[in-house]
């Protein structure tokens, strides 16, 4: 993280973090609602285990508590930029496949896409606060894999939403770490300790 923070920067970061935590919480509950609707409308099995989906940023992370603040922000930002592309692809796909038949699902998808975009912008602000600046956007994120059958696309969508729901939880945790007074030191719990 940045050199010793000025009080105003600390206050600004804490404000951004707490707003980010609320945004992540709202995003997560909306994604979970969307997941329920998506599973039901796509006729999928809610308990189905979906293998890791290529091109979808995995929220799973090892040694999470040892990450630096910058690492957290950069990983979050990269993920949400990718989700922005993935959700846009899903929205386009949904219109093509269902047309007006399921406008509700389309609206819910669009609403989550909006929140993901807002959250990405929020992360960029946090990175700017570090006078480090957000990395430039690479190309438009992962292309939709060439030939996927409809069922694979349905599963892919399920995988995207499930990962996004987990990312929303991880982001809230990351932002809480960032908001901690003892920022920078991975003062968070180390996994070496056993109960």
């Amino acid at each position: 993280m940045a050199a010793a923070d000025s009080p105003s920067a600390t206050l600004r970061r804490r404000d951004l973090c707490s707003r980010g935590i609320r945004l992540a919480g709202k995003m997560r509950s909306d994604v979970i609602d969307l997941l329920d609707t998506y599973v039901e409308r796509q006729g999928l099995d809610a308990s189905a285990s979906v293998a890791v989906v290529e091109g979808v940023p995995a929220a799973a992370v090892e040694h999470w508590d040892e990450q630096s603040g910058t690492q957290r922000l950069l990983e979050n930002l990269a993920a949400y930029r990718t989700f922005r592309t993935l959700l846009a692809q899903m929205l386009e796909e949904q219109r093509e496949q269902l047309g007006e038949a399921d406008a509700g699902l389309g609206r819910a998808l669009a609403a989550v896409l909006l929140q993901v975009s807002a959250f990405a912008y929020h992360l960029e602000e946090l990175l700017r606060l570090e006078s480090r600046g957000a990395p430039s956007e690479e190309e438009a994120g992962p292309p939709q894999p060439l030939h996927l059958g409809l069922f694979e696309r349905k599963l892919r969508g399920l995988g995207v939403l499930r990962e996004l729901a987990q990312w929303a939880v991880r982001s809230a945790r990351d932002l809480r770490q960032l908001a901690k007074p003892s920022l920078g030191s991975s003062s968070a719990l180390s996994t070496a300790e056993s109960p």
Binding site: R41, G43, D45, D102, F151
Partner: peptide, 9 residues
């Protein structure tokens, strides 16, 4: 089938 089709898994 419904709008999104019937899945065969």
């Amino acid at each position: 089938s419904n709008a999104s089709g019937t899945n065969v898994v």
